[in-house]
């Protein structure tokens, strides 16, 4: 089996991964609201881009749907997702890169 192609992590994808980093599974709408809240509306996902992004992440093996979550009535309509190990690794690597960038920027006093 070939290694799934790693998608370029756009801000939207990154935020979705970040969103799922908490140890609980979330459904699409929940992710959408959380991303919007966390970024103060800077990253705004519509339903189309949301599910498109989830597809890409799933395809790359970074997240996985949870087949059955017996959570009352909306279980029929919603897929719940969680990070895979690979997803966790990727997220931490990416964050690491960002941290280095942030560190560099701070040394040069780009930000405080």
């Amino acid at each position: 089996m070939t290694k799934p192609k790693q998608p370029r992590l756009t801000p939207a994808l990154f935020h979705i991964l970040l969103c799922l980093a908490e140890e609980e599974e979330k459904h699409g709408y929940g992710i959408m609201l959380e991303v919007r809240e966390r970024t103060a509306g800077a990253v705004k996902l519509g339903p189309g881009s949301l599910y498109w992004s989830l597809d890409r992440l799933e395809e790359a093996g970074l997240i996985e749907p949870i087949p059955e979550v017996a959570s009352a009535d909306d279980a029929k309509r919603r897929n719940y997702y969680r990070l895979t190990t690979r997803g966790k690794v990727t997220l931490s690597e990416e964050t690491q890169k960002l941290a280095i960038i942030v560190e560099l920027a701070r040394e040069r006093a780009v930000i405080e």
Partner: peptide, 19 residues
């Protein structure tokens, strides 16, 4: 949308929209 995409997400997208 392409049929394959719709088959996977139509219900969830409609639900999201209604929320």
């Amino acid at each position: 949308l392409p049929a394959a995409f719709r088959a996977r997400h139509e219900q969830a997208m409609l639900q999201t929209f209604s929320n």
